[in-house]
């Protein structure tokens, strides 16, 4: 767990994603993609972890393996990369601050990704100007995108025309969204609210709306429990992690103080949902572990002792740190 390597890069990284494995039982993925933001020329880069043996410090013959990420490909991107999600092993969806969503494909036998298609100006303000597309969510072959214009759009990877446009999802900006089921999405906004929408029914009104705080602190990210779709975790601008149970009859939530800066992303471990990860503007990544706690997932997440690291990079990560060991 203490083994990690640091690589400094020239551009500020906004998103970082592992490329999914083709074979779920196969060895761990060794490729990941990053997107940059706030630059004149933003780019999407692909990295590969290379193992390099080095002699250990005390000169033992036994050599240690250093896992070093190497940039293998880079392509420029118009606008900040606001979100990056893999649809499947080969396809990667990218959200841009220009309001468009593009789809990139890994070319077999090369390191490169090339654009497959793009949905331009998907998000626009009602009175002029493109709105940044802030988030993406994927479910099978579907992509949902949310924007600062408060709209969500449902796309299918093989169709140029959007499947569905949810015009009035929000009065302010949507910061993140996620599929609860094929037909249900959840969004979080800058007013501190969680909203769920049933795509089969009238989508002009949310089917559920929850305010997390009284002060309307923006919620920045949301993740669904892989096993129990009614459990979601969300992180806010105030650094708090909130776990909610969305079932109407027993709605409750737990709020936990975590980071000293905004929580930019929250993720459940896909296979071991007792483990949760949050990362923040304060430069820290936290690993939450509920394995030893109560069976109720809403109340059981505690910051795992010894596994959460003190902030290494002051409140924004210029460099990327990649935790190589399997995280668990």
């Amino acid at each position: 767990m203490d083994e990690y390597s640091v690589k400094f890069v020239a551009k500020k990284i906004s998103k970082i994603r592992w490329r999914p494995k083709l074979d779920p039982k196969g060895p761990q993925s060794r490729t990941f993609a990053t997107g940059s933001w706030d630059d004149q020329n933003n780019c999407i880069a692909l990295w590969q972890i290379l193992d390099r043996p080095i002699a250990s410090e005390n000169g033992d013959a036994e050599s240690l393996l250093v896992h070093e990420p190497q940039k293998v490909f880079e392509t420029s991107h118009v606008g900040d990369i606001m979100d990056l999600k893999y649809v499947n092993h080969d396809l990667m969806a990218v959200a841009s601050s220009t309001g468009s969503v593009s789809l990139l494909k890994h070319r077999s036998n090369t390191e490169a990704v090339t654009p497959v298609c793009a949905w331009d100006k998907l998000h626009q303000f009602q009175f002029g100007g493109s709105a940044p597309c802030t988030c993406l969510a994927t479910h099978n072959e579907w992509i949902a995108s949310g924007g600062e214009d408060g709209r969500a759009v449902l796309l299918a990877i093989d169709q140029q025309a959007p499947l569905q446009t949810l015009d009035k999802v929000d009065s302010c900006a949507i910061n993140d969204l996620s599929f609860l089921k094929q037909s249900e999405i959840i969004t979080v906004n800058s007013f501190g609210q969680l909203k769920t929408f049933d795509l089969r029914q009238d989508t002009s009104r949310e089917s559920q709306i929850l305010s997390v705080t009284e002060t309307h602190t923006p919620l920045l990210c949301v993740a669904r429990h892989p096993g129990q779709p009614h459990i979601v975790a969300t992180g806010g601008y105030d650094g708090m992690l909130t776990i909610c149970d969305l079932r109407q009859e027993r709605f409750h939530m737990t709020r936990m103080e975590a980071h000293t800066g905004p929580v930019w992303e929250v993720k459940f471990h896909p296979v071991h949902p007792n483990h949760l990860f949050t990362c923040s503007d304060d430069g820290s990544l936290w690993h939450w572990d509920s394995t030893d706690c109560a069976t109720d997932p809403v109340q059981s997440f505690m910051p795992s002792k010894g596994k959460c690291r003190p902030p290494m990079f002051p409140y924004f990560t210029v460099g990327i740190r990649v935790l190589i060991s399997s995280l668990l």
Binding site: F125, Q126, F127, G128, E148, G150, S171, A173, S190, F191
Partner: peptide
């Protein structure tokens, strides 16, 4: 841009 909600937030 007449985005009253976002303005209010």
């Amino acid at each position: 841009q007449e985005r009253l909600g976002a303005a209010l937030s």
